[in-house]
């Protein structure tokens, strides 16, 4: 990103909150409807000690669910992507399962495991599996046969081909899916906390809104946004380091 673009996008974010703040004052909007960003920030600071356990809980369920989801997703993706037949056979089922709204499975998890941490983790798992499976499988299945031929003329085994061509080739797809999956994992755990939790940001926001404590509800939203952005940035940075080759810069290439 160029410096001017970076400046413009920062200005846009600052401007967004400024317009929000000023609009609330200008139109005399009550804090019960839409609190001002400054009020939300104040609430965040005042109630911080009480908010920490909820934040930790949500981060914990999200990360555990995300890690399990990615692990399972990679294995399934490798199996499906390793052969053209498996890919074609399994894809319709996969699309079907992934199009189920994941909110709908929360009541089932609550039925099986009771309210609390387990359904939140499981919802995060289910919601983050699919992007990983689809991307890893697609990355493997679209490997250029010419690149595999290079290895096959060297009498490489299927495992050699997988580790030297298939998996490195699928890495950009995998990391693209991680960025999607980590934000989705948050959606999963917060939904479960809202529906059937006794802790976590989702649960806290539900209770705050029931008490008409709107600034606190919005404070929860801010925490979620901050955690989501943080994790996204971490995975984007790792992606850049590991798969820099896929984002080739034209100006470095020679004629």
């Amino acid at each position: 990103m160029k410096n001017t673009e970076r400046f413009a996008s920062t200005a846009l974010i600052v401007g967004f909150f400024l317009v929000w703040e000023l609009a609330c004052i200008a139109f005399g909007i009550s804090e019960i409807v839409l609190p001002r960003p400054s009020q939300i920030l104040m609430t965040l600071i005042e109630r911080w000690p009480a908010l920490v356990p909820h934040t930790v809980q949500t981060l914990y369920t999200t990360l555990v669910g995300f890690a399990l989801g990615v692990g399972i997703g990679v294995v399934i993706g490798m199996i499906i992507g390793s052969s053209r037949v498996a890919y074609n056979v399994a894809f319709p089922l996969l699309v079907g399962l992934s199009s189920i709204p994941k909110v709908a499975v929360v009541p089932i998890f609550v039925l099986w495991f009771g309210a609390g941490t387990v359904p939140a983790v499981l919802t995060a798992v289910v919601i983050s599996i699919f992007p990983v499976v689809v991307n890893v499988a697609t990355g493997l299945a679209t490997t250029e046969p010419e690149l595999e031929d290079v290895l096959r003329t060297l009498r490489a085994s299927r495992t050699d081909i997988l580790f030297n061509v298939g998996l490195p080739r699928a890495m950009p797809y995998f990391f693209a899916s991680l960025k999607v999956a980590v934000t989705l994992a948050f959606v999963g755990s917060v939904i479960a906390e809202t529906v059937a939790g006794n802790r976590g940001i989702g649960n806290m926001m539900l209770i705050a809104s029931a008490n008409f404590n709107v600034p606190l509800t919005f404070a929860g939203l801010f925490i979620l946004a901050a955690m989501g952005i943080g994790l996204y940035l971490i995975f984007a940075a790792i992606e850049k380091r590991v798969t820099g080759w896929a984002n080739r810069k034209a100006e470095l290439a020679m004629g």
Binding site: E144, E146, L147, D149, N164, P168, R169, M171, R248
Partner: peptide, 26 residues
């Protein structure tokens, strides 16, 4: 067997050196 194709078919994630060393690895 050593083989070269119409397209260079170098692995884009490996440096030129690592690409050349591939047969020694396999």
């Amino acid at each position: 067997i050593g083989m070269a194709f119409q397209n260079p078919t170098l692995l884009p994630w490996l440096s030129i050196r690592d690409n050349v060393m591939l047969p020694l690895k396999i």
